[in-house]
């Protein structure tokens, strides 16, 4: 267990020594999000023109105004939404790249601890492992798709005709069981992902199959689970705090925005620390 705690500490040390990586990931997140809402901004400006109802909508959720925008200026809705989805897709690639960058950098720094850190190393390491990391993500995505399909089959094993059911109680029970099951699978999925990626970086082989098999064997090891949980606990606490604060400090907007950005920063920190600690743990 001491190895777990040591790995976690080293994860934080890595973050502390490479704050510029955190800044880059945050800035790219902000930039992509900003670009994604560009069409929406143009759309809203054309919809509202100079209507003072924009202020009402800015202050709070207003169903009537939203629906009047959609019903009277609806052409732009599809464009705005497709733009949002496009950027989500791009960010998935970027997150694989950042994972590769962080883990590659941890390995590099361990090999050459006295070298000065340059940010470009993060990008170089990211480029080296990106496609292998992406393959792991794709395998994981495929696995989730299969799991979800099987869950749907289980959920609907008695058919979906409501007229055949005695009551909806068993449906809702089944639904919650599946949700819990999916959370557990996702938990172990993330352990698999991080250990597989660690092996990819450590062994640096073009074929990732061996790394994946090793990772599969490691996901049920108590230490792996403990490391994942240690990483998760602060995130869960901070998330709870954020949702609590968000409800209390919804106004003024700038305060809500700053709190939201701090929370986002913490989520990125979680990702960096997790990547670094898993590599330390696996190595």
């Amino acid at each position: 267990m001491s190895k777990v705690i040591e790995s976690y500490k080293k994860g934080w040390q890595f973050l502390w020594n490479h704050k510029s990586v955190l800044c880059v990931i945050y800035i790219i997140n902000l930039l992509l999000a900003y670009l994604s809402v560009g069409p929406l901004k143009n759309y809203l400006e054309s919809a509202f023109g100079s209507s003072t109802l924009a202020k009402k909508l800015a202050d709070k959720f207003d169903y009537t105004i939203i629906m009047d925008v959609i019903n009277n200026y609806g052409v732009g809705v599809g464009v705005s939404l497709s733009s949002l989805f496009t950027f989500i897709f791009i960010y998935v690639f970027w997150s694989s790249f950042t994972g590769a960058g962080v883990m590659g950098l941890v390995k590099k720094r361990k090999q050459n601890p006295d070298d000065n850190f340059k940010l470009v190393q993060f990008f170089i390491e990211g480029a080296i492992y990106f496609f292998r990391f992406l393959r792991v993500s794709i395998y994981l995505l495929f696995t989730y798709a299969v799991v979800l399909f099987l869950m749907f089959k289980f959920f609907s094993k008695d058919g979906l005709s409501v007229f055949e059911f005695e009551s909806e109680v068993f449906l809702i029970n089944r639904f919650w069981i599946l949700i819990i099951l999916f959370i557990i699978i996702a938990f172990f999925g993330s352990i698999f992902r991080d250990i597989a990626r660690s092996f990819i970086v450590i062994e640096d082989q073009p074929n990732i199959l061996k790394s994946n098999i090793k990772a599969l064997k490691s996901i049920v090891i108590v230490e792996s689970i403990a490391l994942s949980l240690i990483n998760l606990i602060p995130l869960v606490i901070i998330s709870a705090l954020y949702y609590l604060l968000r409800n209390v400090l919804n106004e003024p907007f700038i305060v809500a925005f700053i709190i939201s950005q701090i929370f986002l920063l913490f989520r990125i920190i979680y990702r960096i620390v997790r990547c670094a600690s898993f590599l330390e743990f696996t190595d």
Binding site: V37, L40, F87, Y91, V92, A256, F257, L264, R267, I268
Partner: peptide
């Protein structure tokens, strides 16, 4: 919308 988008992107990257 931008802050929601930022968090959504980060949430999806957490999963895969």
């Amino acid at each position: 919308v931008l802050t929601k988008m930022q968090h959504l992107m980060e949430s999806i990257s957490l999963l895969i």
